[in-house]
Nucleic acid binder design. Structure first.
Lengths: 244, 244
DNA sequence: AATAAAAAAGAACGCTTGATTGTTTCCTGA
DNA sequence: TCAGGAAACAATCAAGCGTTCTTTTTTATT
């Protein structure tokens, strides 16, 4: 806190200052600034100014800049993991677990966009030792979903040939929401949860009716796609269909 | 380039130096270092050392650090957009177009991970004017998929209530592959394209047989999930089912 | 062979950065 | 009430940053 008022002598400990409160303010400001500018781009003077301190005073609250980042990311990951496990506790049906996981992940990411963004983007800014801790936590979190998919496949409810790949795919899709979601947008959180969860469930429960041929006739494929450097797909001949 | 050999007088222009070649080397080293350390974290001295130059000499090849980033990202986005349009050209059937887009996006991202990563992560490091250009290109790219989904929904092939949301979801999912894919892994590019494209098509073609009730009976949901801060979903009562 | 242009070296610049230290002020509990 | 610890300031440091400028060498052109 602090922030010297106009007619103060203006030195040293400021009136009403309180360690716990300042610590929390620093944490919040840190999240905000790292989210906005990135860890490397945020200077400690900038952070100190945001809280109303001198940069040197920050060192009462963290060992160094790197540890500030680590604390933020580690605490976030532990929170994410703990809350997910709590939400899933007691649910055994794979489909219900999948829906619960999906809904939890989406809501968590919509309400904590800054934390999530930092945890995903700034992993590379962590020193090796710190990164290892965070990656381990992330693995455990991914393991929750992977296990759900595995169980569902075993029960015959899901059609998932590669649970690991599907896990990465689903998590990427769900996490992507915080790249564009903004509170107060056209669609409510509930609506978005509905839409996304539908996509996840469709993907997990396997092919709908339309994979190969279709009842409704379609327009004919006119030209063969030209190679454009990425190498055109060697997949089986595209289904030639025609429309009325 | 350059890199004075042992018994040279060691000043100024180095033997065998060539502008075009150096420019290309700088570009490549730039991509490599930004990918590894991030734009802010990469210093021009680091970049110069990677190429075998002094930092000041770099300014023969770009206006400033910011423009180097912009050039890399802009060129990448234009390449991505152009190749996607080329791959889709001539295909009219929405399902075929969706598969083509999905396969293209995956292959492109698997073979150009560094460029893609940079374009996605360092947008915030671009100055406003530059960012606007890049975002516009990205919009056009997303528009390709959105239009495919819209057309497919209109034709009744896809069941997509919100093409915009589905577009973001699909692109996030596909792009996510370069967070973990490494060449030479257990699964080949073709296999991954198969898996991912299957997920995309299932999601677009709508609900499989398992959305609400299921032929195969499932285990009963034991406990109601406790609220864990994210607020338990207000969705309609979870389907209560029982297993043999 | 002479000359111009290209390519890079290398030194210097003004700034900002993360970090450290010593000092001053405020707060609180015995 | 008054000491002692907590909280913050103020000044400082060396290092590193992006950038500019001048000089030197190599290559290309005539």
């Amino acid at each position: 806190m602090a922030g010297r008022t106009k007619f103060q002598k203006a030195m040293a400990r400021t009136i009403g200052s309180n360690g716990a409160r300042t610590a929390e303010a620093i944490r919040q400001a840190g999240v905000k600034l790292i989210y906005k500018h990135g860890y490397e781009a945020m200077s400690l003077r900038q952070l100190a100014a945001e809280v109303g301190l001198q940069s040197g005073s920050l060192y009462k609250y963290f060992e160094n800049k790197q540890n500030l980042l680590f604390d933020i990311v580690r605490d976030h990951m532990e929170d994410l993991l703990g809350k997910a496990e709590a939400d899933l506790a007691g649910i055994t049906d794979p489909l219900a677990r999948l829906k619960t996981f999906s809904a939890f992940h989406l809501r968590y990411h919509m309400t904590r966009m800054a934390h999530v963004f930092i945890a995903n983007m700034e992993i590379r800014s962590l020193e090796d030792e710190h990164r290892a801790v965070v990656v381990a936590l992330r693995r455990r979190y991914e393991g929750l979903l992977e296990e759900i998919l595995r169980q569902g496949a075993e029960d015959g409810v899901f059609q998932v040939s590669e649970p690991k790949v599907a896990t990465y795919a689903i998590i990427s899709m769900l996490t992507g929401i915080c790249m564009w979601y903004r509170p107060g947008g056209r669609l409510s959180q509930d609506e978005l949860v509905e839409i996304y969860t539908g996509l996840v469930v469709d993907g997990a429960t396997g092919p709908g009716p339309a994979t190969a041929a279709r009842a409704k006739p379609l327009e004919a494929v006119a030209a063969q796609p030209r190679d454009s450097g990425t190498r055109a797909k060697p997949r089986a001949a595209r289904p030639k269909t025609a429309r009325a």
